[in-house]
Simulated scan of single mutants.
Amino acid sequence: MLTLPAVLTHAVAPGFVRSLTPGLFADPGEVVADAAALQQFDSSALAVLLECRRRALAAGKRFSVHGAPARLRELAELYGVAELIPSAATA
């Protein structure tokens, strides 16, 4: 499981993406991003999730998000990417 930090804004998103190792996407099956800790975020959190999705799909894995705050889901709807970051329960 990939755990997102409590703060995921434009200022910290590039560093978080750089910290993603290929090993995170090597486990069999599905890559699940745990967003339950997110407290302060902006649209950069969506960009991070989409990058994680891209890497998971490139590795032949499914991708989903667990514990996404309602505001993050609202942003995903607003930007038209909600179906690209499905909830783990519905993936």
Rank of each mutant, 00 (worst) to 15 (best):
V32L: 07
A11L: 15
Q40V: 14
G80H: 00
A26M: 10
F16P: 15
A58P: 02
R55F: 04
A58K: 11
I85F: 04
V12F: 02
H10G: 09
A36Q: 07
I85C: 09
R55E: 11
R73I: 14
Q39F: 09
M1T: 12
G23N: 03
L46G: 03
R62Y: 13
R71A: 15
V81Y: 00
P28T: 08
P28Q: 09
A11S: 14
F41G: 11
V48M: 01
T3R: 15
V12A: 03
L20N: 07
A47W: 05
P86D: 10
A58S: 11
F25R: 04
R73K: 13
M1D: 15
P5N: 08
V65R: 01
L38W: 07
D34Q: 07
L24W: 13
F25E: 08
L4W: 02
R18K: 13
P28Y: 01
A76S: 10
V81L: 03
S64N: 06
S44L: 01
A59P: 09
A35I: 14
T90L: 09
S64W: 00
Q40C: 09
L8K: 08
A6T: 10
K61V: 06
S43E: 04
A26L: 13
H66M: 07
A6S: 10
R53T: 06
A70T: 06
L75W: 04
D42E: 04
D34P: 08
A76Y: 13
A36C: 08
R62H: 15
L50S: 05
A45C: 02
Y79G: 05
L8A: 01
E83N: 11
A37E: 12
F25V: 04
L49K: 04
